[in-house]
Each structure stands twice: as C-alpha cells, then as structure tokens.
Simulated scan of single mutants.
Amino acid sequence: MLSLIGVAIIVIGLALRLNALLVVLVAGFSSGLVAGMSPTEILAALGQAFTDNRAVSLFIITLPVIGLLERNGLRDQAEHLVQKLRAASAGRISFSYLVLRKATNAFGLQLGGHPAMIRPLVAPMSIGAAERDLPEEALSSPRFKALSQRIRVLNAVSENFGNFFSQLIFVASGGLLLIKSVLDKSGASVSLADMALYAIPTALVSLVVVFVLCRRLDARIRREHQLLREEYPQPSGQTNATPGKDTFTTSATESHS
C-alpha cells in the first residue's frame, strides 16, 4: 500500500489547491523513498524524465509572442473584423475552427491550441459576432456577460474536441505510436493504418456533436439579442439589423445604407 503514497499525495494536494508543481515533486520524492531510492537517484530520475519530455514545454515560447500581439491590439482587430462580416456568428466561427483543427490534425499539423488560437483570435471573433447590432448599454449588462461566458466555453469545446478526437487520425502521431508500442508488448499486432482508420468514426461523431452545440448556441444568442433589445432600446436615429433565423443556413444578402 505504501507504493501508492504518491497518488494519495497528488489527490490530497490538488484537492487542497496547493501548488501543483510542488505537489508533484513531493509525490515523486515520496514514491522514490518508499521504493528504496536514494535522494540522488530520485533527482536523476526526475531530471531524465524532464529531458526526455522537454518538447512538452515548448508551448511556453509562444506565450510572450501571444502577449505582445494582444498588447498591440490583436483581439480588438479580430472583433472589428468579424463585426463587418454579416454572415459570421459565434456558432459558425466555433464550428469552422473545429473543422480547421480536425483537418490540420489529420495531416499532423499542430495549428491551434488555447493560448495560440482560442484566446487571441477565436474567442474575440465569436464575442464580436455576438456584440453586433447591440447598444453599448447591453454589452455591459449581466445578461450579455453570462452569454459571453457561454461563447467562450463553446470555443474551448471546439478546441478540445478538434484536438483530442482527431489527433489519432495521423499515422505518425505520438499518441498512436504509444498505443501501438503498448499493443506490441502485449502481443497484439495492429498496423498504424488500421488504428488510424478506426479513429475516423470518433472524429465524425464529435463533429456532429459540436455542430449541434453550435446551432443551440446561435439560437440562444438570437433569443438573448431580442431580450437585450427590449431591455436596452437603441436611441432613436440608429437602426438595428435583425439577425437571421438560422445562422447555419444561407441567408439573403443584406443591404446597407
């Protein structure tokens, strides 16, 4: 039972909201001491594990770049751009990103991620589409703030579904190679092509699920727009463009004065 002390430390530490890195280190040292390893051997094992998996921390390099882009107005420009596209909606933007994420993953291209795409681009564009034609007072209301949180949740869902349920389609993906190595050690010989083929149905089902979620979100946005316009009527002399009944169907081209 003492061999599981590391798992218990991680569960208790994370439940108490302690520093995650510190909790993992303490759990690693505790498991190593129980296994009879010396402190030097534990440090060597931790260092070797970090060296073998150092590519996992490469995303840190992108954080300063994203921060500089946001500081210089990337989010604002994304919102302004999408507000000019009358056919764009929060659901359409999320679903389009999902399709892009799946397509790039299928070819082994890691184009995406929460810090690189969702926060600086997809989320501002989706919220900008939801802000279209609403008065300024409505944008600061609790109702719209709650709606914007729902939009961000769907943006995160599109990233997670697009990445997790399509990365195994690429035959040279790390996850697929790991599964094959485990199966080979177990005596089950399965080709990478067959494993990638069986990953396609899961990717398609996740595509349908997010499509339905996007439709429901756009329907909710239309209802919230109507309530916000009633609660915060626009000043006289300004006109509102009525959103389409179905943002996933082709709508007639709107004329602007």
Rank of each mutant, 00 (worst) to 15 (best):
A138T: 02
A55F: 12
L147D: 05
F144C: 05
A90D: 03
K145M: 13
L139Q: 07
A45L: 08
G73P: 00
G112P: 00
V157G: 03
E136N: 13
N72G: 09
L46R: 01
L109G: 02
Q167Y: 07
R152N: 11
Q110A: 15
L74K: 09
G91F: 00
S38H: 04
A88P: 08
I42G: 09
M125Y: 08
K145W: 09
L81C: 01
D133A: 09
V157C: 08
N160G: 07
D52K: 14
A90N: 07
R132S: 07
M117K: 04
V82L: 13
E137L: 04
N163T: 12
A129P: 02
N163K: 11
A45T: 12
L134S: 08
I42R: 00
A87E: 13
N105T: 05
M125P: 05
D76L: 01
A88Q: 08
N53Q: 15
A129V: 06
L74G: 07
H114E: 10
L46D: 00
R54P: 11
A129K: 00
N105L: 02
R54C: 14
P115E: 15
L98P: 03
F50I: 15
T62I: 13
L85C: 15
S141D: 09
A130E: 06
T40F: 00
L147R: 03
N105C: 01
K84F: 01
V153K: 13
L68G: 01
A78Q: 06
S158D: 02
Y97C: 01
N155S: 10
P135K: 04
I151V: 05
G67H: 12
S158N: 04
G91V: 05
A45I: 01
S126I: 09
F161P: 02
R92Q: 06
R86K: 14
P135I: 05
A156I: 03
L81I: 09
G162K: 03
G128N: 00
G113M: 04
Q83D: 13
A123S: 11
Q149M: 00
Y97P: 03
E41Y: 06
L100H: 07
R119N: 13
L121S: 10
E159A: 12
M125H: 00
E41C: 07
R71I: 10
S148G: 10
I93L: 02
L147V: 06
E131Y: 14
P39H: 03
G162D: 04
T51Q: 12
F50V: 15
I60Q: 10
R101N: 12
K84M: 02
A87Y: 15
D52N: 14
H114G: 08
I66G: 04
F95I: 07
L46I: 10
P120I: 09
S140G: 14
Q77S: 06
V99S: 14
E70Y: 00
N160E: 10
S89Y: 09
G128E: 03
I60V: 15
A55N: 11
F161N: 10
R143L: 13
Q167N: 11
K102C: 15
E41R: 06
E70K: 13
R150N: 05
